[in-house]
């Protein structure tokens, strides 16, 4: 916590909020713009609806879970169980779609509720167990994985009907050319951005990540806030799982969700959120997810070797973390 001198409280109140967009976000918009223009000139069809629409759909689940993950990381925590949680929600929902033939609404509600429940488990253990989040979520990741495999039984889920096509890549997944999955992600990101920036409750997450002890002394209900961060992540995992089913095939196998936690954390870090907590932006996370997916699609459309996209993502993470450290140093020396 920075020390505020008693002499100039009036000056502080006028600029208590950070600027609406961070430097990282402006850089990301620039990088994505340059990348898209470069791909526009060098590929036959990157800048067409048939290419951009699926790209936005593929970005949605990572960006959506990224909103929750950003809040968790802002509080100084982390959630490495989201991949396994996606598996549980996806297989549960897919089974319901096949066996009970539930409709879209029921499927979404069940999936979101299941995700919220898993998030609650994480949140209670972390907020009240006082063990570091990486250990708790590493443990629950394995528990969730076991749970998911139990629901799978011994086999894949076959013949998933097109009930969730509303969130998918196809014609039913768009209105006026805008993919629903991306639109929903955009709206939730905007709401989270406003909440984090303009409400007291939202600011508390930053306070906790900056210094939990000081936040507690300042009257922030730290445990409740931390619990909420993980529950929110769980709810978003539930919704993202519906997206995952919709953009997959009519078969769901055990690999669903595998490695997604790393993709989400990568998007958050590239988006400029400090892995040490206290600073971050959901808008940056959305841009980070969009950049990663644009690179993956670009590499394929350019006919480059597939593993190059891993190389680029790795470079982005290192550059983003480096930039964050430089910013932190600049702030300290100010």
């Amino acid at each position: 916590m920075s020390v505020t001198t008693a002499e100039k409280p009036a000056v502080r109140t006028t600029k208590v909020l950070p600027s609406p967009v961070t430097g990282q976000e402006i850089v990301l918009v620039g990088v994505i713009a340059i990348l898209w223009v470069a791909l526009w000139v060098s590929t036959p069809a990157f800048m067409t609806a048939g290419s951009i629409q699926p790209l936005l759909v593929a970005t949605a689940p990572v960006a959506l879970v990224g909103v929750g993950m950003t809040i968790v990381i802002i509080t100084g925590g982390i959630d490495v169980s989201v991949g396994a949680a996606i598996m549980v929600c996806s297989v549960l929902t897919a089974k319901l779609l096949v066996d009970a033939e539930v409709n879209l609404g029921v499927a979404v509600i069940v999936s979101v509720a299941a995700g919220g429940l898993l998030g609650l488990v994480n949140g209670v253990l972390i907020a009240y167990g006082r063990v570091h989040a990486i250990i708790i979520t590493f443990g629950t990741a394995n528990l969730f994985l076991f749970l998911g495999l139990q629901i799978f039984g011994s086999g894949t889920v076959n013949g998933i009907p097109g009930t969730l096509a509303f969130f998918g890549r196809g014609q039913d997944g768009r209105t006026f050319g805008v993919p629903h999955a991306f639109l929903i992600t955009l709206l939730i990101t905007a709401a989270a951005w406003w909440y984090l920036r303009h409400t007291a409750g939202g600011r508390h997450f930053f306070a906790i990540g900056g210094d939990a002890q000081a936040a507690r002394l300042a009257g922030v209900r730290v445990q409740r806030r931390v619990l909420l961060a993980y529950v929110l992540t769980g709810l978003l995992v539930g919704l993202a799982s519906c997206f995952v089913i919709a953009q997959g095939t009519s078969t769901l196998d055990q690999s669903v969700g595998s490695g997604k936690e790393l993709a989400v954390i990568a998007a958050v870090v590239i988006g400029g959120t400090s892995i040490m907590g206290g600073r971050g932006s959901v808008l940056g996370t959305l841009l980070g997810a969009l950049l990663v997916q644009s690179v993956a699609s670009g590499v394929t459309q350019l006919g480059w070797s597939s593993q190059l996209s891993d190389l680029f993502v790795g470079i982005f993470i290192i550059v983003a973390v480096g930039a964050d450290l430089l910013r932190a140093r600049a702030r300290r020396s100010r």
Binding site: P44, A45, F46, S51, Q247, S297, T300, Q301, L302, G303
Partner: peptide
């Protein structure tokens, strides 16, 4: 997604 990108490429 990769198959989609290939069709566009």
């Amino acid at each position: 997604q990769m198959a989609t990108d290939l069709m566009n490429a």
